[in-house]
Simulated scan of single mutants.
Amino acid sequence: MRFKSVVAACGLLLAGIPAASAQGDYLEWAGANGLMGPLAEPDADLDTDGITNLMAYAFDLAPANDPDAWEKLPSLAFLGDPPEPVMTFVLPREIPRDVSYVVELVREDGKRVEIARKNGRGPWKGTGEIFRRKLDDGCTEITVETPLDMPIPEGDRPLRLRVEFLP
């Protein structure tokens, strides 16, 4: 299954489920997609493909069996000589106000260093090199490279994308 290789490469991580008052837009999305009760929980995965409701919401995917998921979710590549990690993903036309997209570098000691963050519809911030490319469908392809002054750890998963609710 392709998603397992994406998870292995990117180390997707779901973080913190907020109080209901902080989930306004998410709850609207869940209702519009017919999700109720436990199936509406941000960490629920209706079709057991590894894409939680929160990830589907953050990337404007259907909560089950979305054929476009693999083109929008993060992928990791190693480019250059020596090879350096590069993460690429596609943000929806309408970026949710109530989520943050956080790219982290995973050091050899296992500690994570945040290199890029986008809170809701605000600008990208961080020390990583962030490139944006507008796509024909109105979505935006994001590419994040590690900062030049940071050592790149050995291993096949040096970058992670974490999606979390904004406080």
Rank of each mutant, 00 (worst) to 15 (best):
F3E: 03
A8C: 07
A8T: 11
A8V: 09
A9I: 04
C10S: 11
G11R: 05
L14E: 14
L14G: 12
G16Y: 10
G16L: 12
G24Y: 00
D25T: 11
L27G: 03
W29L: 01
G31V: 11
G31Y: 10
N33G: 05
N33L: 04
M36R: 15
P38K: 10
L39Y: 09
L39R: 12
A40W: 01
A44R: 05
A44Y: 08
A44M: 06
L46M: 05
D47L: 09
T48S: 13
G50Q: 01
A58E: 01
F59T: 01
F59P: 00
F59V: 03
D60P: 00
P63Q: 09
P63S: 11
A64R: 08
N65E: 14
D66Y: 05
D68F: 05
E71Q: 14
E71N: 13
E71G: 12
P74R: 02
S75N: 05
F78S: 04
G80L: 11
P82E: 03
P82N: 03
P85D: 01
P85F: 01
V86S: 06
M87E: 06
T88A: 11
F89Q: 01
V90A: 03
V90Y: 01
L91P: 03
P92K: 04
E94Y: 14
P96D: 11
R97L: 14
Y101L: 08
V103N: 02
V106T: 00
D109W: 10
G110H: 06
K111R: 15
V113Q: 14
A116T: 03
A116G: 07
N119A: 15
N119V: 11
G120V: 08
P123H: 10
K125P: 00
T127I: 13
G128I: 05
E129G: 12
E129F: 11
I130D: 06
I130Q: 05
R133N: 12
L135M: 10
D136V: 12
D137H: 06
C139L: 00
V144A: 04
V144S: 03
E145C: 05
L148W: 06
M150L: 15
P153A: 09
P153G: 08
E154K: 13
P158C: 09
L166D: 11
P167H: 01
P167R: 03
